[in-house]
């Protein structure tokens, strides 16, 4: 094929493949929403997207700025509220999967989206927990993506439960049987979790990425699948959908900030005159 793609396009296209038709999926904004919509427009047309803003059965026409924006509310099937989503939908077991972006992650898929550095003397307060702890705790499985985050031996702050200390720890702590992170897609490869120990291992390498590049990012002795696959490159169809639906996701956060701020300055100075 030889079609060129951005790293975000690769991540989104790979994440979208994790969703199956007729599944309920809880999604936030950005990469996660792009993946959910891509799945619905390709192999999973009957997947039902919900957001914790109380919106179920949404069909966003462009990538939303946030979980409640008008992109999500032009036609949806069930208007409830945030408590309803977490109780009558999530706690009753209707949510098959959730997509989530990761700040920090440890070897058992536990996550931090709250503080970088010691919380009492932090360097950055990230967004905070939001709905992540419950969605990761109670959805059938969590599909994780990480494009600006980091692997760590020990989280600075424990926001969302993966497999805790591994093995059955997560289920002993009361989370639903079989739930937990199923996959982590980063800028270098795709990780899965051992069925017994629940430790993550590298399952796929992105095209052209050497194994060493992955090991450099992981502070522990990373386990690697016996047969290491290559992540499939996004197809032309996937790229066309993504570039039209979510151009700002496709270019990545850093470039987005640069391009959007330039455009904002243009708009503001133009219209002042």
């Amino acid at each position: 094929m030889g079609t060129k793609y951005t790293i975000q396009e690769l991540i989104v296209a790979r994440a979208a493949k994790e969703l199956q038709d007729r599944e309920f999926v809880a999604i936030g904004q950005g990469i996660a929403m792009a993946a959910g919509v891509l799945a619905r427009r390709t192999h999973a047309p009957n997947a039902v997207i919900l957001t914790e803003a109380g919106l179920l059965g949404i069909d966003p026409f462009k990538v939303p700025l946030h979980i409640a924006d008008p992109t999500c509310t032009r036609g949806f099937t069930y208007s409830c509220d945030m408590i309803d989503i977490f109780t009558t939908v999530l706690n009753q077991g209707y949510v098959d999967a959730t997509f989530l972006g990761v700040g920090q992650i440890d070897r058992y898929g536990n996550m931090n989206s709250s503080y970088l550095g010691d919380p009492d003397a932090f360097t950055i307060r990230m967004t905070g927990a939001g709905g992540a702890p419950e969605f990761v705790g109670y959805a059938g499985r969590a599909i994780l993506t990480m494009s600006g985050g980091a692997f760590v031996e020990k989280l600075d702050y424990f926001t969302s439960p993966g497999y805790l200390t591994g093995g059955n720890a997560r289920y002993e702590a009361g989370m639903p049987a079989g739930s937990g992170p199923s996959v982590l897609i980063t800028t270098r490869g795709v990780f899965k979790f051992d069925a017994v120990t629940k430790e993550m291992f590298l399952a796929e390498l992105h095209p052209g990425v050497p194994l060493e590049a992955v090991r450099e990012e992981v502070p522990w002795d990373l386990k690697v699948a016996d047969i290491l696959k290559t992540t499939p490159a996004p197809t032309g169809e996937e790229l066309a959908i993504l570039r039209s639906f979510a151009p700002d996701v496709v270019m990545g956060r850093k470039l987005q900030l640069e391009v959007v701020m330039k455009q904002v300055i243009n708009l503001l100075t133009q219209k002042a005159g």
Partner: peptide
Amino acid sequence: LPGIKVTDVVR
């Protein structure tokens, strides 16, 4: 939902 009691949000 009690699962989050293992997290720092609760602890």
